[in-house]
């Protein structure tokens, strides 16, 4: 059984590696964006393990992106170091936010994270001295903008998204999982078994924010131009939660399946509905909550058990 999994994963990764041969530039662009949102979705799912619901992952994404932008503007581009720094700064924000949030109920966390992302967006827009305001800033491409830029970016994003999935898998197989799951289900009972709930909630927050910040940094370099509406936008936070939900919350595979299903669906919607595709996203979110809250993976597992 285990060897089958290994085989499937190897095949899938191998197939992904070959993608640039088959795909045109536009399709490759879509795949790159999908992988970036896959990283964000995976990190959101990690935070969820401790029953903390973030409606503001766009905040961390934007912090990562803007850190890269600022570093490249003030100093010379130092890729990929600036991407890491972006992740670390996002994680620092998360530690502060985590310290504030860790005693709160899940409702309050949702509110605070939503407000966090919105306030960052408003501040960047309204206070031009922070980061050129609503105008946005240019970010140099990672590989110098030469002909193979997109393909190189694709492999970088593929590598990072595999790393994030490995990280999620490692958490699942480590002691952390037991602490996360205990804190998720019952903080008081977890405390009685020696688990410090606050510590693990903050760990989850910072790991999650780090990954999202890195994704934001890569996005900034890849798109090479960022503005507050794009990187702090609600659509990023929406992506982060709808993909795990559609694929399957609490699972590793969930965000993967969710991101690919949704992006493909999103492309179709974009053709038919134009800019209104977010309506479709919202409808999918509502429909899955109402009718299939365990997601595609959970549904498949249920079918398999029968």
């Amino acid at each position: 059984m285990k060897s089958i999994y290994v085989l499937v994963v190897t095949l899938a990764v191998g197939l992904m590696c070959c993608l640039p041969i088959f795909l045109g530039p536009h399709s490759l662009h879509i795949v790159i964006l999908t992988l970036i949102s896959l990283i964000v979705a995976t990190s959101w799912n990690i935070l969820l393990l401790t029953h903390q619901i973030s409606l503001g992952h766009a905040g961390f994404f934007g912090v990562g992106a803007y850190t890269c932008g600022a570093l490249c503007e003030k100093f010379m581009p130092i890729v990929p170091l600036d991407i890491l720094v972006g992740g670390i700064i996002a994680a620092l924000f998360a530690v502060i936010l985590g310290v504030i949030c860790c005693r709160m109920t899940v409702w309050a966390i949702a509110i605070v994270t939503l407000a966090f992302a919105e306030v960052l967006k408003v501040l960047v827009i309204m206070v031009p001295s922070i980061a050129d305001g609503a105008e946005g800033i240019r970010v140099p491409p990672i590989f110098g903008g030469v002909g193979y830029e997109k393909i190189a970016c694709f492999y970088l994003v593929l590598f990072v998204s595999l790393l994030s999935l490995t990280c999620a898998y490692a958490i699942r197989k480590s002691k952390l999982y037991y602490a996360f799951a205990a804190v998720h289900d019952d903080e008081e009972a977890a405390g009685m078994l020696g688990v410090n709930p606050l510590k693990f909630k903050i760990i989850a927050f910072s790991v999650s924010a780090f990954m999202t910040g890195v994704a934001g940094g890569i996005f900034a370099h890849y798109i090479s131009f960022i503005d507050p509406y794009t990187v702090f936008g609600l659509h990023i936070s929406l992506d982060a939660q709808i993909m795990p939900l559609v694929g399957g919350l609490y699972t590793i595979l969930g965000p993967v399946i969710g991101s690919f299903v949704l992006t493909s669906a999103g492309e179709v919607f974009r053709i038919y509905f134009g800019s209104g595709y977010l309506i479709a996203y919202g409808c999918i979110l509502v429909a899955f909550v109402l009718f299939l809250p365990e997601g595609i993976v959970g549904w498949a597992q249920r079918l398999a058990r029968r």
């Binding site: 002691k175 037991y178 602490a179 799951a181 205990a182 289900d185 008081e188 009972a189 020696g194 609490y250």
Partner: peptide
């Protein structure tokens, strides 16, 4: 009783055996 509902019996007990000391 406050079991952790998302885990099996073994996993429940393991929380204690991992973090209790």
């Amino acid at each position: 009783a406050k079991p952790f509902p998302k885990m099996t019996v073994l996993e429940n007990v393991m929380v204690g055996s991992i973090y209790g000391k």
